[in-house]
């Protein structure tokens, strides 16, 4: 861990406002981008960001200084986003086991989609699908980890993910028609 990170965290632990602001500035844009993927709209994303930073500052004393700060911060925000969804009672609720049919998207179409459009697609997903899609496709957790994080079965995680992926494909294809 770089010395200046170490110093910055120590100053944050001493509740120095300018150090807290520096830490905020360092992660705000990245974490707001993450929150936008988990939130249904900007207001929810802002709430998540606020809660995430509160959790981050209150958990600093638990950080083991030999670890990766970026990864640790990201985990805090992912956990905050998941908890936010649980509190809002919009998390995955239905056990889905049926086989999901596949649908494909042409690569040329896929390559022309902007990040903004991809974000819009994610946010059109129902909250449960959105959460699992984010965790699996972007955060790269496996279904076992997702199942533990969300308190669901691995099968539910898989089936929700497949349905989310199918929904996204359908949305892309509908847009292209």
């Amino acid at each position: 861990m770089p010395d200046n990170d170490y110093e910055l965290l120590l100053r944050c632990l001493r509740k120095e406002v300018d150090a807290e602001y520096m830490l905020y500035e360092r992660y705000a844009a990245r974490m707001y981008g993450l929150c936008l993927r988990y939130g249904g709209n900007e207001a929810e994303a802002e709430d998540m960001l606020q809660e995430g930073f509160m959790k981050l500052f209150s958990s600093l004393r638990d950080f083991r200084f030999e670890g990766n700060l970026d990864g640790w911060v990201k985990r805090i925000f992912v956990t905050t986003a998941l908890n936010y969804r649980r509190i809002q009672k919009t998390g995955p609720a239905v056990e889905l086991t049926e086989e999901v049919e596949s649908e494909t998207v042409r690569e040329d179409i896929l390559s022309n989609i902007s990040v903004k459009d991809l974000l819009a697609l994610i946010r059109r997903l129902p909250p449960g699908f959105r959460t699992i899609f984010n965790l699996y496709a972007i955060e790269e957790y496996n279904h076992k980890e997702i199942a533990e994080m969300l308190g669901i079965t691995e099968g539910t995680s898989k089936s929700q993910y497949h349905r989310a992926r199918k929904a996204i494909r359908q949305m892309i294809n509908e847009t292209e028609k």
């Binding site: 705000a28 981008g33 991809l118 974000l119 496709a137 972007i138």
Partner: peptide
């Protein structure tokens, strides 16, 4: 998706 959002940032 993975590539698009791996370094995605937006000012709050």
């Amino acid at each position: 998706f993975n590539a698009a959002f791996s370094g995605f940032e937006q000012e709050p």
